[in-house]
Amino acid sequence: MDEELDDVARVEERHRDDRVLDAGALRALAHPLRVRMYDILSQYGPQTASSLAERLGESSGSTSYHLRALAKHDLIREQADRGTARERWWERPVGGVSFGNPDAMATPAGRAASQLVMNEFLRGRNDQLLDFVGRGMAGIDPEWQHGTLISTATARLTPEQSKVLSHKIMALIDDAVDTYRNQTGENVRPVSIRADVFPLPELGEKS
């Protein structure tokens, strides 16, 4: 029990200063292409308008415009010590971000922006998972096969038990992120780490 309380306290302390996006930042991010660009910066690190354009099948003029819109609300920032006047590099600041702003959720426009951002973010991550499964897990290197986990389970929990479980999982994720965030070297590549803990509707209850 003491270990569980330690996990809860550690996670709450670490994420106490996570940025909660205000209504303006949510509206700025509430565009499918901007969410995709923001997520690429989160997963793959700094990019230019040209590298994002090539990855997304867009023009560099379009990605440059959307990068400036994201930067206006401090969602991303320019790497001042890298690049040139013609080729600017952009990064997502380190730190947690929450899309669930209670004030924004209190208005129809805020709820719509939050919903769009969450939908696009989860759609992109789901597409990555389905693409990985579609290509066949057996097609990856054996050493990566042993390091891959796709698993679902169901347990019957109280809200407090669900909170403790969520914090224990987050503690593991936080440790991995803190330890390996900037790791480089042979056979190092971005790895998606995902955890979902949420209550299912009761039988007969509309989901």
Rank of each mutant, 00 (worst) to 15 (best):
H73E: 13
T148N: 03
H31F: 09
A28T: 09
N119L: 09
S51N: 10
D178V: 14
R189M: 13
E143D: 11
K168T: 15
S62E: 14
G124C: 04
A104W: 07
E91R: 04
K168E: 12
N119G: 07
L5I: 04
V191S: 05
P93E: 01
I40W: 01
W89L: 00
L26F: 04
D196A: 08
R77P: 00
L41E: 03
V188C: 10
W89S: 01
W144P: 00
R123N: 14
S192D: 09
V20W: 00
A195E: 08
V191C: 10
E4G: 02
H15P: 01
D175G: 12
Y38Q: 05
A53H: 12
Q183Y: 05
T184K: 15
R92V: 03
P46H: 05
N126F: 13
L52T: 12
V20Y: 02
T107C: 05
Q115E: 15
A104N: 03
V177M: 13
H146T: 11
E87W: 03
L29D: 04
D39S: 10
A153D: 09
D2A: 09
A23D: 07
G100I: 10
P199W: 09
M1Q: 09
Q128E: 15
L165M: 12
V191D: 00
R14M: 05
R36T: 13
S162W: 01
L29N: 06
H31E: 14
G204T: 07
K206S: 14
P46C: 00
M1W: 03
A80W: 00
V164N: 11
L41W: 03
A104L: 09
D39A: 08
V8G: 01
A25P: 02
F132M: 13
Y44Q: 13
D174E: 13
L26W: 03
E13M: 01
P32Y: 10
S42V: 00
S151E: 05
L200P: 05
L122G: 02
